[in-house]
Simulated assay, not measured.
Amino acid sequence: MTKEFNQIMMAINEKETIIIHRHVRPDPDAYGSQLGLKRYLQLKFPNKNIYAVGEAESSLDFIGTFDDVTDTQYNDALVIVCDTANSPRISDVRFSQGQSLIKIDHHPAVDQYGDINFVNTEASSTSEIIFDFINHFNDLSIIDASVARLLYLGIVGDTGRFLFNNTTPHTLEAASELLKYPFNHNEELNKLGEKDPKLLPFQGYVLQNFDLNDKGFCKVIITKDVLEKFDIAANEASLFVNAIADIQGLKIWVFGVDEGSEIRCRIRSKGIVINDIASDFGGGGHPNASGVSVENWEQFNHLAAALNNKL
Rank of each mutant, 00 (worst) to 15 (best):
I143K: 13
I80V: 11
D68E: 15
Q97G: 07
Q97Y: 11
Q97N: 15
F45S: 07
K48I: 14
A145V: 10
H107L: 06
R94K: 15
Q112E: 14
D92W: 05
Y51E: 04
R39Y: 13
E128M: 05
N49P: 00
D61N: 15
R89H: 07
E57W: 02
F62S: 13
Y74G: 10
V53F: 02
A77Q: 11
N120Q: 13
V53Q: 04
I134R: 07
H106M: 11
A148T: 09
P108Q: 06
R94M: 08
A85H: 00
E55L: 14
G54A: 07
H136V: 10
T65D: 09
I90C: 09
L35A: 07
L41H: 02
N117Y: 13
A30G: 14
P46E: 13
G98E: 10
I104F: 00
F62V: 01
D76L: 07
S146I: 03
A56G: 01
C82V: 09
A56E: 13
R94N: 13
G114P: 03
T65W: 04
L37G: 06
S96N: 12
F66V: 12
R149V: 01
Q34C: 03
A145D: 15
N49M: 14
I129N: 06
S96P: 00
Y113A: 05
D139V: 02
